[in-house]
């Protein structure tokens, strides 16, 4: 265990911490059933992962005598903009009528849409 300093240990720990969340976000983007659940994974998990990697970078630069102003700026910017972007994407999906997964039952707007489609199909079958 010679040659491993405390700052190196902390930097490695925070990199691994952030790495777990970045990979989790991408796996969630693959595995969730529809757009609205898929947006949860990257915007929460990947943002937290980038936050961990930025903390590692701040510790690493501080151990080499630099002050990480731009890291802090990037952290604040990412934490401000990630929810706004996710909200805009979800709003676009909602207003353009992207259907949620079949097992989601509580959205009344899509319940009405689904009901109208079933009525239309019934009308087509009656013709």
């Amino acid at each position: 265990m010679t040659g491993i300093s405390l700052s190196e240990l902390l930097t490695s720990f925070f990199i691994l911490f952030g790495l777990f969340f970045v990979l989790t976000g991408s796996i969630g983007l693959i595995r969730f059933p529809d757009v609205y659940t898929r947006l949860h994974a990257p915007t929460k998990s990947a943002t937290l992962g980038v936050f961990g990697i930025l903390i590692a970078s701040i510790i690493h630069q501080a151990s080499h005598g630099f002050l990480g102003i731009k890291e802090i700026l990037t952290t604040v910017f990412l934490f401000l903009t990630a929810p706004v972007g996710a909200h805009m994407i979800a709003r676009a999906a909602y207003l353009t009528g992207v259907q949620p997964a079949q097992q989601s039952t509580t959205c009344e707007f899509f319940y009405i849409l689904r009901q109208k489609e079933e009525d239309k199909q019934d009308a087509d079958q009656n013709l």
């Binding site: 952030g18 970045v22 976000g25 991408s26 983007l29 757009v35 898929r38 947006l39 990257p42 915007t43 990947a46 943002t47 992962g49 980038v50 990697i53 930025l54 590692a56 970078s57 890291e71 990037t74 990412l78 990630a82 972007g85 996710a86 994407i89 979800a90 676009a92 999906a93 353009t96 992207v98």
Partner: peptide
Amino acid sequence: SFPDRVAASDTISTNIVALLI
């Protein structure tokens, strides 16, 4: 759907940020 692709490209840019750091 198209919002899926927008979310995926947003996540790719977040991952590029992590890669550069």
